[in-house]
């Protein structure tokens, strides 16, 4: 019988030099983190790059002794991934675009988007918080949330993919939302910007 070793124990073993523990951590969370990043960038190569950058940061932070979120490894890694996704979008939009009209409008390239950026940051933070909570739901509820909210699948498709009736898929979604609301209240997350 295989014993389940929790993330905190794997981290401790890794910091004592057991590199296989890192492999276990990556393997355990690979799909969730990859899906999380993919749901934001919709590009496999970019996702792979961000995934690697995320774990490089994880490795460095752990070895530098700066990790202090014992027991919350996955939400911590998700936050790192989320911040790297934001960096990716910032870098892609950094260069102003000039469309080549005969008149050059300085305000077309110079705009104060501080307020929008702040709102976006708050929205991203809320999204990150909620994503972290989704992983506290039962597996079948996580699945329906992921497929519906992040992958934009219809309930018919969800039902087909998971091998249940549409009513069951709808029921799982309903309970997922009820449980999410409870978790949001328990964790005192504010959902307005």
């Amino acid at each position: 019988m295989e014993l389940h070793v929790d993330d905190a124990s794997l981290i401790r073993k890794y910091l004592k030099g057991d590199e296989r523990s890192l492999e276990s951590l990556i393997d355990r969370h690979n799909q969730r983190i990859f899906n999380f990043i993919y749901s934001k960038v919709f590009d496999r190569e970019v996702t792979e790059d961000i995934f690697q950058d995320t774990f490089i940061k994880v490795i460095r932070t752990l070895k530098l002794g700066k990790y202090n979120e014992e027991g919350k490894f996955l939400p911590w890694v998700m936050r790192i991934a989320h911040n790297l996704v934001i960096d990716y979008y910032r870098k892609s939009n950094r260069m102003p675009r000039y469309e080549g009209s005969s008149e050059f409008h300085v305000f077309s390239v110079m705009q104060d988007d501080t307020l929008n950026a702040e709102k976006q940051l708050i929205r991203d933070q809320i999204s990150s918080d909620v994503s972290g909570l989704v992983y506290k739901l039962p597996e079948e509820q996580q699945e329906v949330i992921r497929m519906r909210m992040y992958q934009n699948m219809s309930f018919k498709e969800i039902a087909e993919k998971t091998g249940v009736s549409i009513n069951t898929a709808l029921g799982r979604m309903r309970y997922a939302l009820i449980n999410l609301r409870k978790l949001i209240e328990e964790n005192q997350i504010v959902l307005t910007d």
Binding site: E19, I26, F34, E48, F51, Q52, Q151, M153, E157
Partner: peptide
Amino acid sequence: TTHINTDSLKASDEAVKFLLDYSKSYS
């Protein structure tokens, strides 16, 4: 709707190997 096969959505073996090698080389 966009249909995505989530079963295959995970980091490649090469990406994981790179991370494990990076970890071994980083101190």
